[in-house]
Amino acid sequence: MARSSHDILSDLLVDEFDVDRATLTPDATFADLGMNSLALAELLVIAERELHLDMSDLDVDLDPTLTLSEVVEHLDAVRGSAPDDTARSPRTPRTDPTATPA
């Protein structure tokens, strides 16, 4: 069974950014957690690797006023298009639906 987006995001924040797990409430903002837009950019890169998604799939504004629940909802929606979080390798190129076959 795949881990939830909430669990993955929580573990990343605790393990990679030394955020106290007790502060990870659904309505906590990234600013509340002491994270600025640069830290959020780093978080998105790590999330891309952990969730096997392309950055373009993670179409999130790097806004420290986002809440954890807003980001989890977005990640759930993105992951919903690939139910198994290992379905696509992070190195697998995306296909261009407008490209003409060679």
Rank of each mutant, 00 (worst) to 15 (best):
H74F: 14
T98A: 11
P97G: 06
D11I: 09
D15Y: 01
L33P: 02
L75N: 02
T92K: 11
D18T: 07
L53R: 12
L53S: 03
D54N: 15
V45P: 12
A99C: 06
I8P: 02
E16T: 04
E70S: 08
L53Y: 00
L40S: 07
T92Q: 14
I46Y: 02
D63C: 05
T67R: 00
P64L: 05
P97V: 08
A102Y: 03
A2N: 08
A22N: 07
D96A: 10
L9G: 13
T92N: 07
D61L: 07
L40P: 03
D18H: 05
T65L: 10
L13N: 09
L51R: 02
S81D: 09
D61S: 10
L33M: 04
T86H: 07
D96L: 13
T65C: 05
D7S: 15
L44Q: 05
M35V: 01
V45A: 15
D32A: 05
I8V: 15
R3K: 12
A41L: 14
L12W: 00
A31Q: 14
R88Q: 12
A99N: 06
P83G: 09
P101H: 01
L62V: 10
T100V: 12
D54H: 15
A28C: 09
M35A: 09
P90M: 15
V45W: 00
H52Q: 11
D76Q: 07
S37M: 03
L62F: 02
L24S: 06
G80K: 06
G80C: 11
R88F: 05
I46R: 06
F30S: 01
T29S: 15
V78N: 04
L51N: 08
T86P: 00
A28D: 05
I8D: 13
D57G: 11
D54F: 12
L9D: 13
L24M: 09
L38R: 02
L33N: 01
M35T: 01
L24G: 06
V72N: 04
R49N: 11
S69Q: 13
R49K: 09
P97F: 11
L43N: 03
T95V: 14
N36C: 03
D27H: 08
S5I: 10
L38K: 04
P97H: 11
D61Q: 08
E16Q: 08
S4E: 10
T100D: 05
L38V: 10
S5E: 12
V72H: 05
A39Q: 01
T98D: 11
R3S: 14
E70L: 04
D54Q: 14
S81H: 14
L9P: 10
S81Y: 11
S37V: 06
D84V: 09
G34P: 03
G80I: 07
P101S: 03
H74E: 07
T100Q: 07
A99Q: 06
T23C: 08
A31N: 10
L53H: 01
A99S: 11
M1R: 02
H6F: 08
E48R: 04
L43H: 00
L12V: 15
A102I: 01
S56H: 04
E42A: 10
D85C: 11
T67Q: 04
L40H: 00
L33Q: 01
V14L: 13
V14I: 15
E50L: 04
V60F: 12
N36Y: 01
A77C: 02
D11F: 02
L40D: 08
T92E: 14
H74C: 08
A22D: 14
D61M: 06
R49C: 11
E42Q: 04
A39N: 02
E50G: 00
S5P: 10
T23K: 08
L44E: 09
A87C: 14
E42I: 05
